[in-house]
């Protein structure tokens, strides 16, 4: 099966016919750090993915400039 990764965008091939959480474990990706997308649907970690599937692991972590009030004291 094909796995699409982001930042930078790339594809890797891994064995299918197992649960999403097993794919994530093989790729050393924490489940809470990505959305798992198949087609136009979200997929939960317990779902099976087959050899013919393509899933996108879309990262959810963003960071950088903090515009929050904690750092927002007017200076």
């Amino acid at each position: 099966m094909k796995v699409v990764l982001r930042n930078p965008r790339r594809e890797v091939d891994v064995p299918g016919n197992r649960r999403v959480k097993d794919v994530l474990r093989e790729l050393a990706i924490l489940p809470e750090t990505v959305l798992v997308i198949r087609g136009d649907e979200l997929v939960t970690a317990d779902q099976l993915v087959s050899d013919g599937d393509t899933i996108e692991l879309r990262p959810v972590m963003s960071g950088g400039a903090d515009t929050g009030p904690a750092s927002g004291r007017p200076r």
Binding site: N7, I37, L42, V60, S62, G63, D66
Partner: peptide, 28 residues
């Protein structure tokens, strides 16, 4: 942020997935 990403995805909001090029290595 996983929940906000899921909401944006489910609402079909076209957001920028790519990270800011300057964010790499940010302490946050």
């Amino acid at each position: 942020e996983r929940e906000t990403a899921a909401y944006a995805f489910l609402k079909k909001i076209d957001y920028i997935v790519e990270e800011c090029p300057f964010a790499a290595g940010a302490t946050s």
